[in-house]
């Protein structure tokens, strides 16, 4: 199975080389009503994120007196993958991913500047071709910056896997579903610190370093693209 993922010429199923990212397309600030919003397209994976806040918490009990609370809602559209699946809001898998994203952002966002408020992140996966988690984190990061919420750095995520003795960057759906060990990393590009490291399969320790290095390299390369997108979107109100 895993031999098919890397052709003898060294090309992957979609024609990329092992350390190659998919095409990235970003749009920042698409919604007028949300405080911040962003759209990220990584190859065929499409993700929307909207940020509301910091705002008054909807319930009195949800507020903390010394910092803001971050809420994440992660949704996968039923039409997003080849097979139509309707997921409920209470889907355990979706809740788990939402909580992973929440914990990824908590150490980076300066929540202490907004006591008694909440920040809501809504993520919608429109099309799923592997790498939904890192597309969602990158989209949320852009939306948070668009909302003007202070963060100590960008949060950039990327995935890497291991097949046929080679580390592969940014797995697509076929590679992910072939039971390839996949590692998703969220990183602060300026300091090089990792804020999330997620792997749900087994990988020999000897290969782990290669995979991790490749994923962090991918993060650094994505960070430059995201920074460019933010700079392009930065527009002050112009005098008429």
């Amino acid at each position: 199975m895993s031999r098919e993922l890397l052709a003898p010429e060294g090309l992957r199923v979609d024609g990329r080389r092992p350390p190659e990212l998919r095409r990235l397309l970003t749009r920042v600030g698409l919604f007028a009503v949300a405080d911040g919003s962003a759209y990220v397209e990584l190859g065929n994976t499409k993700c929307l994120a909207a940020v509301y806040g910091p705002k008054e918490p909807r319930t009195q009990s949800a507020q903390l007196h010394d910092r803001a609370v971050i809420n994440v809602e992660y949704n996968v559209a039923s039409f997003s993958s080849g097979e139509r699946k309707s997921r409920t809001r209470r889907d355990k898998r979706l809740l788990e991913i939402a909580s992973v994203i929440k914990r990824t952002f908590e150490p980076v966002v300066m929540t202490a500047t907004f006591p008694r408020s909440e920040i809501d992140i809504y993520i919608q996966i429109l099309q799923l071709d592997g790498g939904a988690l890192h597309a969602a984190i990158n989209a949320s990061c852009l939306a948070m910056i668009d909302a003007g919420i202070p963060m100590s750095d960008y949060v950039v995520a990327c995935s890497a896997g291991f097949a046929s003795g080679t580390a592969l960057l940014d797995l697509n759906y076929i590679e992910e579903s072939a039971e390839t060990p996949a590692l998703t990393v969220a990183m602060l590009p300026k300091s090089g610190k990792l804020t999330m490291l997620n792997m749900e399969s087994r990988l020999h320790l000897d290969h782990f370093k290669d995979v991790l290095d490749l994923a962090t390299e991918g993060c650094k390369s994505l960070a430059e693209s995201l920074d460019e997108a933010v700079r392009k979107a930065c527009k002050t109100p112009r005098p008429i």
């Binding site: 300066m110 910056i145 003007g148 919420i149 202070p150 100590s152 933010v230 930065c234």
Partner: peptide, 13 residues
């Protein structure tokens, strides 16, 4: 914010 004596931006602006 300050990080190792450097003044660092926390928002885009």
């Amino acid at each position: 914010f300050t990080h190792e004596q450097a003044l660092v931006a926390s928002v885009a602006g």
